[in-house]
């Protein structure tokens, strides 16, 4: 069994209204945030023969459903679940 942690976020250059709102709130609280980007963390448990195959599957998930290529980039890490 493999555990994948997938992060989906807006591409650079796409205005992120949630990020802007959070940045405003942080600055209001005195944290002086330079930039805030909001993304999604998606955790997937999956079966695969080996790590490479798991990674390939996760990449396909991202491309097909989890990220919208018009707006979003994705990154992920996959680790084998220790028993």
């Amino acid at each position: 069994m493999f555990n994948a942690k997938i992060c989906v976020r807006f591409k650079n250059g796409v205005l992120d209204p949630q990020g802007a709102a959070i940045k405003g709130a942080l600055n209001h609280l005195g944290f002086e945030a330079e930039d805030v980007r909001v993304g999604k963390l998606i955790e997937v448990k999956l079966k695969a023969g080996n790590l490479e195959e798991a990674k390939a599957k996760v990449r396909m998930m991202c491309e097909k459903l989890l990220a919208n290529p018009v707006l979003e980039d994705f990154s992920f890490e996959v680790v084998e679940e220790s028993i």
Partner: peptide, 10 residues
């Protein structure tokens, strides 16, 4: 073509 995002005032 294109995509939809949350309204800018959320």
């Amino acid at each position: 073509p294109g995509a939809m995002m949350k309204n800018r005032d959320l």
